[in-house]
Structure formats: structure tokens, C-alpha cells
């Protein structure tokens, strides 16, 4: 991204990015298109938006999607029950509908006086038609409120980041309008950088042992849920707090419960591997 005038996203001090990812972010900003991010859990999809926000010094608006979320909620909600209630007790002037219109996250992002970063988190959790319902709004960056006959138009196109776990296929029409990036699981080199961001004073020997153990655990295909970055960070924190000497890390794998969150995985690991390594860890845990 060599042109002038573009917001140059270079990452932020607490978030390590790869070059292709930075490029994708800058393209999305330059073209004003939503950036769709996919990748394994724990690869920092959600944190990316936080990093863009702090890196560019822009406000972040987060819209967490749940299975019950409707596209309309992101635009605005007309609180009819409140109005009905007010009409009964006469607290407010019910003919002024405006006061019962509450902007959703997308609406807030449009109405904001300065450019914001909008994170639509885990878009695939909602109904299969959800992304299609937002197509027009994301394209034109405006929507109409029939109740007040108002049109909300984005003053500045928000920088939209959409994350997905690919549980559902996203509709083609939606995909066509996005910039896409798939975050690969970080290789040991990048992971070292990531860990150092979190623990600047970590001893090299401990870091190396921890990463070695971590990547060998990830090799085990039998796990339902392989440990990911966030688990590694927690684990290393536990190792540091627990004052575990580095030579014990790969031998004993202390606090393995921070890495393996599923009971079946934990049992599988203890049964198949710990017996070989020795019972030190199990007795300690008990």
C-alpha cells in the first residue's frame, strides 16, 4: 500500500500481524469494503478489530452476533412496548416517535460524527439469511426508518471487520462484496513474537520449551479441540506464576488443564501420554 491518503494500518503494539493480513486490512480500508476474517479459533480474529481501532486511533463499536440476532436489530429498534406503556401513564409525549427509536450497532456506526471501526463478531452464529439481510445497508451505507421517515446515511464509511468461524456457508452475494482473509495458525516464529508481546520479560529457555511442548500437543489429531493461542498465553502465564523451571515443562507438562479444555481430551491425554511421561503431574494435581 504505497499510495498516500490511505489509512496505513501497521499493527499495534499489543497485536502481531503478518504482512498479508496488514495488506488485506489496508485494501479493505482503501476500498471501503467490509473485511471478512476467518481462521481457527484463537488466531486473533476478534482482536484484529481492537488492534485496528487502537492502531488508527478510532473508536470501536462491537456487535456481538448470537443465534437469535436479527439484522434489523443492528439498524434500529422501535420500542413499541415502551411507547404503549407511556401512552397509558402519560409520562412522555407519545406522538414523538423519535424518542422510541433506538439505533443498533450498525446505526450507531453510521451516525457517528467521526469514522469508527465496526466489528461484527461471529457473523456465522446467526440465522443463515442474516448476512443477506445486511447486504444493502453495507453496500450503500444507509438505511431508512419508515416510522419517522428518516434516512440514516453514514457520515464516514465505518471500517467494518466481520469474523466468522465458517460453521455455516456464507451466501455468495455477501461474499462478493467482502475482502477476505484467512488467518493461518501462527508458525513457531510468529508465535514467539506473539508471546513476547504478552510477556516481554519471559526467559528464552522457558519460552522455547513451552512452544516445543505446545506444538507437539497440537500434533495430536485425536483432540476434539486443539489448544490455540489464547490457551498458550494462559498456560505460559501459569508457568511463570507457578515458577516452573524450564527443564520440567516438557517432561511434566504442568497445568495441562489450561491447554486442554475438553474433558475427553484431558482424559485421553492423561491416559495415553502421561503414563509414559510419569505420574509426577497427576499426583501433583491431586
Amino acid at each position: 500500500m504505497k499510495s498516500d491518503g490511505f489509512d496505513q494500518f501497521k499493527g499495534s503494539s499489543d497485536y502481531v500481524t503478518s504482512e498479508p493480513l496488514r495488506n488485506a486490512v489496508n485494501v479493505a480500508i482503501a476500498l471501503g469494503r467490509p473485511l471478512l476474517i476467518r481462521g481457527e479459533p484463537g488466531t486473533g480474529k476478534t482482536l484484529l478489530a481492537h488492534s485496528i481501532s487502537s492502531g488508527l486511533g478510532k473508536k470501536l463499536i462491537v456487535w456481538n452476533i448470537k443465534s437469535t440476532t436479527k439484522a434489523q436489530e443492528g439498524l434500529y429498534v422501535y420500542d413499541t412496548v415502551q411507547r404503549l406503556n407511556d401512552s397509558r401513564f402519560g409520562d412522555r409525549d407519545v406522538s414523538d416517535i423519535k424518542q422510541y427509536i433506538k439505533l443498533g450497532k450498525l446505526g450507531q456506526a453510521f451516525a457517528s460524527l467521526e469514522q469508527v471501526v465496526l466489528l461484527i463478531d461471529e457473523v456465522d452464529k446467526a440465522d443463515i439469511e442474516f448476512p443477506n439481510d445486511l447486504l444493502n445497508e453495507l453496500d450503500e451505507m444507509s438505511f431508512h426508518i419508515p416510522e419517522t421517515n428518516e434516512t440514516i446515511t453514514a457520515i464516514h464509511r465505518p471500517i467494518s471487520v466481520i469474523t466468522s468461524n465458517a460453521e455455516k456457508e456464507l451466501p455468495d452475494a455477501f461474499l462478493r462484496r467482502c475482502i477476505f482473509h484467512y488467518i493461518e495458525f501462527p508458525d513457531p516464529e510468529l508465535m514467539e513474537e506473539i508471546v513476547q508481546v504478552h510477556f516481554p520479560n519471559i526467559k528464552n529457555s522457558l519460552l522455547r520449551e513451552a512452544l516445543k511442548t505446545f506444538y507437539s500437543l497440537r500434533e495430536i489429531d485425536e483432540f476434539r479441540k486443539k489448544p490455540s493461542t489464547s490457551e498458550l498465553i494462559d498456560w505460559i502465564r501459569a508457568l511463570i506464576v507457578g515458577g516452573i523451571p524450564h527443564e520440567n515443562v516438557s517432561k511434566e507438562i504442568p497445568f495441562v488443564g489450561t491447554l486442554l479444555k475438553k474433558e475427553t481430551d484431558y482424559d485421553y491425554f492423561v491416559n495415553s501420554h502421561m503414563t509414559r511421561i510419569g505420574s509426577t503431574f497427576i499426583t501433583r494435581r491431586q
Binding site: M1, N23, V27, R38, L170, L175, I179, F180
Partner: peptide, 23 residues
């Protein structure tokens, strides 16, 4: 046309981000 790229390497990632929508 916006001049986002200067070489083939950048083109590779740019074109992938825009054209390909699934890993």
C-alpha cells in the same frame, strides 16, 4: 487504479484477498 500495489508479491495477496472468499 488506486495504485495500491507496486510489485507482483503485493499483487498476489491483493488479488487473493479480493477474489478468493474461502480458504
Amino acid at each position: 487504479t488506486k495504485g495500491c500495489i507496486t510489485n507482483l508479491d503485493e499483487f498476489y495477496f491483493l488479488a487473493r484477498a479480493i477474489l478468493v472468499k474461502s480458504e
